[in-house]
């Protein structure tokens, strides 16, 4: 199983294609979603790197967590993340995903995103400018090309740890178990 995953991760042609075609799920959480339209449209034009918006999690590769996550949103994010198809990457966006940011003492927002889903790249800032976002995407591309963006694999291998963390904040766990 793990050999198979490693082989998939180190396939040079596949990694090249994955690197140049990052489909971002158009799911805006928190306040950073407002930075995504300028990144995609004519001023900064992320499409020249092959970064496009996709409407459903089944088709997307990259999940952008754009800012703070309330526990209620975290539920939806986990569900969305598990619906995405396997080589999938998460970008944590803004200081809220790193250490809670300005919501550090809020009863309702999570403080560390990487406790709940595996994050491949953090972009810091509150909020990061579109240049910062594009820089984060390029760093992600480099990691993919080197076969280091293995967050999805890490999630599969350490599912129990992640599930325990998720169930700690989500009291009433009624989500289906996906087989991926």
């Amino acid at each position: 199983m793990n050999d198979d995953l490693d082989r998939q991760n180190n396939n040079i042609i596949a990694n090249w294609a994955r690197k140049h075609s990052l489909w971002v799920l158009a799911y805006g959480t928190g306040c950073g979603a407002i930075e995504v339209p300028p990144t995609m449209t004519s001023r900064y034009d992320a499409e020249r790197f092959g970064i496009t918006g996709m409407a459903t999690p089944r088709q997307a590769d990259v999940l952008l967590i754009t800012g703070y996550l309330a526990i209620k949103t975290l539920k939806r994010v986990i569900r969305t993340y598990e619906q995405m198809q396997a080589p999938k990457y998460v970008i944590g966006f803004g200081s809220c995903t790193i250490n809670g940011g300005m919501y550090w003492d809020s009863y309702n927002t999570i403080k560390r995103l990487d406790d709940y889903i595996p994050v491949d790249i953090f972009i810091n800032g509150c909020m990061p400018r579109p240049e910062g976002v594009i820089d984060g995407f390029i760093k992600l591309q480099e990691r993919i090309a080197r076969g280091q963006a293995k967050g999805w694999q890490h999630y599969q291998e350490n599912l129990d740890w992640y599930r325990a963390n998720q169930k700690k904040v989500i009291k009433n766990w009624t989500m289906p178990d996906y087989n991926w």
Binding site: Q8, N11, A14, A17, S21, W23, G50, A86, W180
Partner: peptide
Amino acid sequence: IDIIKLYSKK
């Protein structure tokens, strides 16, 4: 490129 990537996905 998109199609090569999609074929390489699980």
